[in-house]
Every structure is written in C-alpha cells, then in structure tokens.
C-alpha cells in the first residue's frame, strides 16, 4: 500500500483536556477542533461550517468560550481546554445540561454542545445574567431549530439553579 511518508512539523502538545493532562503529537497545521475530534476522540464538539461562521465547535480555553475551528491546537500548549464531554461529573448532569434537557434547549442537538459551552463561559463570568446578556453571549452560536427561545430559557433556568 501507498506510504505517504511522515507528516512534517509535528510537535508534542501538552494540554489539560477536561481536567486531565495529556500529551499528543500534533501537526502545526492541526486545528483545535480536529485535534479534539480526531486525535482525542471527543466528537461532542461539532463542525457546522467552513470556518468561524456557526459556533458549533465552541469550547472553553482557560475558561473562555472560543470557536475551536479558529485556533490551532499547537497554540493551546499548557492551557486548559474543556469540551461538552467534560461537564457532567460524579454521575450528575451539569446544571446547563439539565436545563437544556428539561426546557428543550436542544432540538436536533447539533448546535447544543457549542451553545452550552458558550453559555458556561458566560455563567463563569456572570452567574446571574440578564436576557440581553444571554443573547449577547450566544450571538456567535447559530441554532436552526429553536428560534433561541428555549435556549435563552434554559440558560436562565441554569443560572437560577445555581443561585
């Protein structure tokens, strides 16, 4: 079989992924979203567009929600990356997951992981957001199913559950 040869420019990446440190060899040109999905096997993070236009790939890097298709994996060296898979702990859903489930914040569910991570970023810096703040924080995450009505309700419910 054809051997394409070694991939140039790989380096060792050490990141804290969902609370656990790990090391992987990654190419310089690997996007964070591809690292998460292909290398780490965390397919909860979605790809919905050809770059930076939908927010489905939103993850937390050092507590801040960013689109993981717009950053290189190599630039996350030494940083903490959190994905949807890291939220539930100890056999309990995270408050946002609980709220999105109960309030129907997810219909088809494809935008949901990115939406929840964007909302989690908001709640970490503003535990009691107004509706306007919620809408502003989610303005980089497209949803085609809900009209955002129940998404906003879900985030409000999660914030209230935390209080």
């Amino acid at each position: 079989m054809f051997d394409p040869g070694p991939i140039p420019g790989k380096r060792l990446l050490r990141i804290r992924l969902n609370g656990r440190w790990r090391e992987d060899a990654v190419a310089d040109d690997q996007l964070l979203v591809d690292y998460l999905r292909d290398t780490a096997g965390l397919t909860g993070t979605k790809t919905g567009c050809d770059g930076g236009e939908c927010g489905a790939c939103t993850v937390l890097v050092d507590d801040e929600p960013i689109p993981s298709c717009l950053t290189l994996a190599a630039r996350c060296e030494g940083r903490s990356v959190e994905t949807i898979e890291g939220l539930a702990a100890g056999g309990r859903l995270h408050r946002l997951q609980q709220a999105f489930h109960e309030k129907l914040g997810a219909q088809c569910g494809f935008c949901t992981p990115g939406m929840i991570m964007a909302a989690e970023g908001l709640l970490r810096r503003q535990p009691d957001p107004s509706e306007a703040e919620i809408r502003a924080a989610l303005a980089g995450n497209l949803c085609r199913c809900t009209g955002y009505v129940k998404i906003v309700e879900s985030v409000r419910a999660a914030a209230a559950a935390d209080a």
């Binding site: 420019g9 040109d29 996007l31 591809d34 999905r37 290189l72």
Partner: peptide, 13 residues
C-alpha cells in the same frame, strides 16, 4: 481525518 477544507500543510514559527 475526513473533514473538508483542512488547512494547507504549514509550519509554525
């Protein structure tokens, strides 16, 4: 890796 439109091969300095 099957995702369309990957980055071209390049190095980081």
């Amino acid at each position: 890796m099957t995702a369309p439109l990957p980055l071209p091969r390049l190095r980081l300095i």
